[in-house]
Design a protein around this nucleic acid. Structure first.
Length: 298
DNA sequence: GTCCAGGCCAAGC
DNA sequence: GCTTGGCATGGA
């Protein structure tokens, strides 16, 4: 591994909650170090720090431009336009937005996102991180890191996963998800246009093509569409969001899936996926909203 | 020890 | 159409 001094830049930002963005269950590879966040985007190691009106970014090789980073972080978008599109008379959503004003949706690599969420099924976020770390350390290419820095690895390419077998994947604690990951890797490796094409399809058609993969249902498909393919109305409904929606919008009853889908489509507007991310983060931080079993706060 | 986790799927109402 | 159990694994 070649090491050298970090190169850095400063991205101007208006409102950006870096911690909430990197730690709200959309990406699984960011590690906090004091005020810094370290991660790997594509083949690049990156260190980020939030300043009053900027994000300071360091990486090892000097890049020609930083478009890859501003696109990933969505640091240049107009957040107000998105927040203004939310329903005006929804105190629950407004409260969630105020609790982490500056939370953004990242734009991630579709393969890493698809693979990560295949591995997420019926796992806690902390365990998803562990599985993905094992996978990258076992099969990912080492990336350049600063001097005396622990090694970091790129997320393994679909072609690499495709040549493995199920026991090798189960050795990374993937469990019953191994077969689905292997199948997805082989399909993506054999159909290089599949994932790039999703961004240009209507959301429903893109979702239908994703759910044809074994182990990919409506929820995981919506995660890929929202977190990697630019489908702003995709609204992943997991156990957290389901209980949150029930408690906030359907007190004392349990709407059927059809009713819930209709509510989501009509209530949250064109950036429903953003609303979902605020509600998800709010529910997880303020566990009192969401006493699935026993809340940690009185 | 028990319950359940950013689910999905096949089987059985 | 909706509900249930099984699927690995390990936090809480």
């Amino acid at each position: 591994v070649i090491s050298s001094s970090p190169h850095q830049t400063t991205l101007p930002i208006l409102r950006y909650d870096l911690a909430a963005t990197l730690n709200s269950g959309q990406a699984f590879r960011w590690i906090p170090h004091n005020d810094d966040w370290e991660g790997v985007i594509g083949q690049r190691w990156v260190r980020l720090r939030l300043l009053p009106y900027a994000i300071k970014a360091q990486c090892v090789a000097h890049p020609n431009d930083w478009t890859w980073l501003t696109r990933y972080l969505q640091s240049s978008i107009c957040l107000d336009a998105i927040l203004d599109s939310f329903p005006k008379h929804d105190p629950h959503l407004q409260r969630a937005v105020q609790s982490c004003l500056g939370l953004r949706l990242l734009v991630q690599d579709p393969w890493e996102c698809l693979a990560s969420f295949i591995l997420s099924s019926s796992k806690q976020i902390i365990q998803i991180r562990q599985i993905i770390q094992l996978l990258t350390e076992s099969f990912g290419v080492p990336v350049d890191v600063p001097h005396n820095h622990p090694p970091r690895h790129a997320f393994p390419d679909p072609h690499v996963i495709a040549r493995l077998d199920e026991p090798q994947l189960r050795a990374c604690k993937t469990g019953f998800r191994a077969a689905s990951l292997l199948h997805a890797a082989r399909y993506v490796a054999d159909h290089p246009n599949f994932l790039p094409s999703l961004a240009n399809l209507p959301t429903i058609a893109a979702r239908d093509s994703l759910t044809r993969l074994p182990g990919v249902g409506e929820k995981i498909a919506n995660c890929v569409l929202l977190f990697a393919c630019g489908h702003a109305s995709a609204f992943p409904v997991d156990t957290w969001i389901l209980r949150t929606l029930q408690q906030l919008y359907f007190p004392q009853r349990h709407p059927k899936p059809v009713e819930l889908r209709a509510f989501i489509a009509s209530h949250f507007g064109p950036h429903a996926g953003y609303a979902q991310q605020y509600l998800f983060h709010y529910a997880r931080v303020h566990a009192r909203i969401n006493p699935a079993h026993s809340p940690t706060t009185p």
